[in-house]
Design a protein around this nucleic acid. Structure first.
Lengths: 153, 153
DNA sequence: TATTGTTATACTCTATAACTATA
DNA sequence: TATAGTTATAGAGTATAACAATA
């Protein structure tokens, strides 16, 4: 009933870290979806393209590992990208169990435009902050996320 | 010659705002669940208790509006809290369509302890940041979330 | 007619198990 | 025996539609 709904409330909610992080994340997710929609991909697919452009060759599990998603989730992701002609699967000659996932020229082109769209979107998202505040936000998030990885061991 | 030596360009994932916000949020959500588990409630339920303590009287839709959740979601939330004896429903005499949701003494007590647990959890979460960085993070998130509400109109 | 609470339904995301083919 | 890809299934979480009671 309430498609995208922003809460109306000035209760002490906005002093809660959980509320703030969740809603900031949701707002960014919506902005990301909007920015990428014209390119026919979503944030997960963009992440796959970016990983493939950064390292080669990678199999499906390897890409999944880089992104922290399950290998079963990876299947549908690669399916979608392959249907759009952005990547291709080919069996690894060294280990025929593995699917090497390869960017096509169309995939590189899409990645290029998607990265521009993402950067523009992030700038708009951070626009209400001055430069120093935006930098401080990113710095803080990096430290907290790095902590997540440390604790995971 | 098959890339046994990956140049290890650690994919710029952690420079992506979407990645950072999502993982920070997930880490906090896990910490929150752990901190509240001993009290038998989750973050959503705590938020309901807090809203009820801050404003009175509130009907189910009104609480839902404060929290930005759907009124259909509110039903199960209040069900759970009522089963635990933390809130009670009573028909509003002014408008018999409305269920006024009321904190019980046990609900107040639970809220009190849960708030303490949440504050301690947030302090632990922010521990890797110095005081100034933590304050800057919260300030930035507040601005961004307030912006979400402005744009939603 | 519109709103509140409710139920039932559907849809998304994710996790798990199991199957195959390869190693 | 273990690993890679795949499929199917089940479980949260959430959105949508519809209904009864009330305004």
């Amino acid at each position: 009933m309430t498609g995208e709904r922003p809460p109306v409330p000035p209760v002490p909610l906005e002093s809660r870290l959980g509320y703030l992080l969740k809603h900031a994340q949701q707002r960014l997710a919506r902005a990301s979806a909007e920015a990428l929609a014209p390119l026919g991909i979503d944030g997960h697919e963009l992440a796959v393209l970016a990983v493939l452009a950064a390292e080669y060759p990678l199999s499906q599990v390897e890409v999944a590992g880089r992104l922290g998603v399950d290998r079963t989730t990876m299947v549908a992701l690669v399916d979608g990208l392959e249907d759009q002609g952005l990547v291709e699967r080919r069996r690894s000659p060294q280990d025929r169990r593995k699917n090497i996932v390869e960017l096509t020229p169309a995939g590189r082109d899409c990645l290029d435009r998607a990265e521009r769209a993402r950067l523009a979107m992030e700038r708009r998202f951070l626009d209400p902050l001055d430069e120093e505040a935006a930098a401080a936000l990113v710095r803080a998030l990096r430290i907290l996320v790095a902590e997540e990885r440390r604790n995971a061991e």
